[in-house]
Amino acid sequence: MYKHILVAIDGSETSEHAFGTALQLAHDNDAQLQPLYVVDNPLVAYDASGYDLIILREAFVKEGRQLLADALARMKHENVAGEPRIVDVAPIGEDISERIRISANEFNADLLVLGTHGRRGFKRLFLGSVAERVVRSASLPVLLVPSRQAQTAVADAAKPGHADVAAAMYEMPASSGADAARQARPR
C-alpha cells in the first residue's frame, strides 16, 4: 500500500513511538523509510550575551546525527530500506512544519508519520504544535501517533470506574461511569 514513508523524529518519547510505528509499517509494506530530523534555526530578536547560534545549531546537528544513526541501525535490524536525512529550516520564512512538508515532497512520500507531541519548547504554546500545522496543509496522508502515556491514559479512562478521568481528558461532563467510559473511547 505504501512505498515511501517519511517519519519526523526529534528525540522525544513520542517521536520514538512514531518511529517504531513507521518502521513497522515500512516493514509490513516493503516500503522505503526516511527518518527525518529537522534542525531549527531560531532567529534572535535581541542581543543576548553568551548566546551563540552556531553552538546551538551544532548541538542540534549532533543530536540529529545520533538519532538518525540509531534509526538506521534499527532499520537495518528490521531489514527496512531507506536513508535517514537531516535538514535545516530555511533562515527566513520557514518553520519546522513547512520543512517537513517540503522534505516529504522531495522524498515522494505517500505517508507521513508524526508524533503528536514533540519537544520544541514554549513556541508550541503560542503557535500550535508542529503536527497540527503539518496536518492543516498536508497534501498526503498523515498518521499521527500519540505518546504511549496518552494511549495508556485513554485506555485507563475507558475502564469502569474512571469516568472522572475520561471527563477531564475530553472536557465532557461526568455522567455514569459506563456512559463516560463509552464516550471516552477513541473513534
Score class of each variant (00 low, 15 high):
G11T: 09
V61C: 06
R120H: 15
G82L: 05
L125C: 06
Y51S: 04
G128C: 06
A138T: 01
V142W: 05
E171M: 10
L6G: 05
N79C: 04
F60T: 07
Y51Q: 08
A109V: 03
A168P: 04
T116G: 08
F107D: 05
I92H: 11
T152H: 12
G161V: 02
A8D: 09
D156T: 14
V7T: 08
F60C: 06
G121Q: 06
R136L: 01
D52H: 11
A18I: 03
L140C: 01
A180Y: 07
D88L: 06
D110W: 05
A168M: 12
A153S: 10
K76Y: 05
Q66G: 08
S15L: 09
Q32L: 13
L53V: 14
L68G: 02
S103K: 07
A45R: 10
D30M: 10
G118A: 03
D10Q: 09
L72K: 15
A155C: 03
L23R: 02
R136D: 01
G93P: 03
A26Y: 08
K123R: 12
K3Y: 08
A71P: 00
Q32E: 13
V134T: 03
S175A: 12
L144A: 04
N108V: 01
P141V: 00
Y170M: 14
L72W: 09
R133D: 07
L53H: 11
E94P: 05
S176H: 08
R85H: 09
Q32M: 13
D95G: 09
G121S: 09
K76F: 00
L143S: 02
K159G: 03
I86C: 11
A22Y: 04
G177H: 12
A31E: 03
G177M: 08
Y170T: 14
R57K: 15
D52V: 10
A109H: 06
R74H: 02
V165G: 02
V80R: 05
A157I: 08
G20C: 01
E171P: 03
L33M: 01
L6P: 08
A59L: 13
H4N: 15
S103Y: 08
K62E: 15
A73N: 05
R136P: 00
I102A: 14
A167V: 07
V80S: 05
H77Q: 13
D95H: 12
R136S: 00
D28F: 05
V113M: 04
V87I: 10
T14N: 11
A184R: 06
L6W: 06
L56H: 12
K76R: 14
A81W: 10
E171Q: 15
L33D: 02
R124I: 09
A26R: 08
L111V: 00
S137Q: 13
D95C: 03
V89T: 11
I96D: 04
